[in-house]
Simulated assay, not measured.
Amino acid sequence: MASAPLPDGEDPRAAFMAGARAAIPYAAVGLLLSASFGVVARDAGFPIVAAIVMSAIVFAGSAQFTAVAILVGGGTAGAAIAAAALMNSRFLPMGIALGPSLPGSAPLRAAQGQTVVDASWAMANRGDGTFDRWFLFGSTAPQYVCWVAGTTLGAFGGDLLGDTSRFGLDAMYPMFFLALLIAEIKSRRAAGVALAGSVLALALVELVPAGVPVLAASLVALWGLRRPKQAA
């Protein structure tokens, strides 16, 4: 069972360690997922160092897999970057919500905000609109280490693994996106938006350059965020 964020005034070290313990299951999953990314990136022609540096700097599974998929499909670097940025746009409102709980100047708060990942942000939420920043830092630390370590293992081990389908690593790639989609479908409206984006992307696959279908589907998702009009 995940540890709860500590109230204000508690020992920062205790909060950090509580966050680290709570994140162990997420870190373990991230290790496997990032290993598959390392293999996929190598198969796509990425140098080992490039794959590892991408994980160390970007640290965002959906963005990294999307960028690689677009580049492998013949898309441009611009399309890959744009799609990755859209995939990570959710961090903007998350950062806005977290901001008041971070002390210091604007650059210092921005630096602290780099530790935000989905699970850490959710676990560090105290439920009253504030966040335990040390719990956030602690929960992100093992996830980051495992993400980079997994990518390193996958990138270096890809040649040794040979046919990755024997180990199911190739299946983790599409299953990752499917899991993201299922997690977001919590209402009929969300299901409708997901269906519309999928249909549009499939319709565009044979008509436009690689990367454009992903961008189009992402724009449909952003359109779906609009507030429904209230009945008069």
Score class of each variant (00 low, 15 high):
R42V: 06
G73A: 03
F65V: 10
L222T: 12
G38A: 11
T66G: 01
L108Q: 15
A191S: 14
S198K: 06
I57E: 01
F131I: 12
L108H: 15
I185K: 06
A194W: 06
A110S: 14
A84D: 12
L219W: 05
A122M: 13
M54G: 00
E184G: 10
G127T: 03
G73Q: 04
R13M: 13
W121C: 03
R226T: 09
V72Y: 00
D128N: 10
L222R: 10
M172I: 15
G113N: 04
L32Q: 04
G75H: 04
V212Y: 08
L31P: 01
G127M: 01
G45C: 08
S55P: 09
A79S: 14
I52H: 02
D43H: 05
S89R: 01
F135C: 06
G192F: 10
A122Q: 12
A97P: 00
L108W: 15
L86G: 13
A196W: 08
T115C: 12
L219K: 02
P7Q: 07
F167A: 11
A60S: 13
S101M: 02
V220S: 05
S62Q: 12
A119Y: 11
I81E: 12
Y26C: 09
V68W: 09
T66M: 12
P213Y: 01
A60D: 09
W134I: 13
V199Q: 00
G157K: 03
P93Y: 01
V72A: 02
P228N: 13
A41Q: 01
G104R: 05
R21W: 10
P228K: 12
A27H: 08
A77K: 00
R188F: 07
F59Q: 05
T66L: 11
T140W: 11
T151C: 14
L33H: 09
A179L: 11
T66H: 00
A196D: 06
D43M: 02
G74W: 01
V40G: 03
G9P: 00
L108M: 15
G224Y: 10
A80N: 13
L222A: 14
M1S: 15
G78F: 07
A210H: 00
I48S: 09
L32P: 00
L222N: 09
N88T: 10
A51N: 10
G74Q: 05
A69H: 05
R166G: 01
A80C: 14
F37E: 03
A82R: 10
A179P: 06
R189N: 07
V214R: 04
E206R: 14
A203N: 03
Y173L: 12
R133T: 13
S139M: 03
A231I: 14
K186H: 10
L225Q: 14
A28I: 15
P103S: 04
P107I: 06
A67W: 05
S139T: 12
L153D: 01
L136N: 10
P107Y: 03
P25K: 11
G129N: 08
G211P: 03
G113T: 05
F177D: 03
A110D: 09
A15Q: 04
A35F: 08
S139W: 01
T152E: 07
G197M: 08
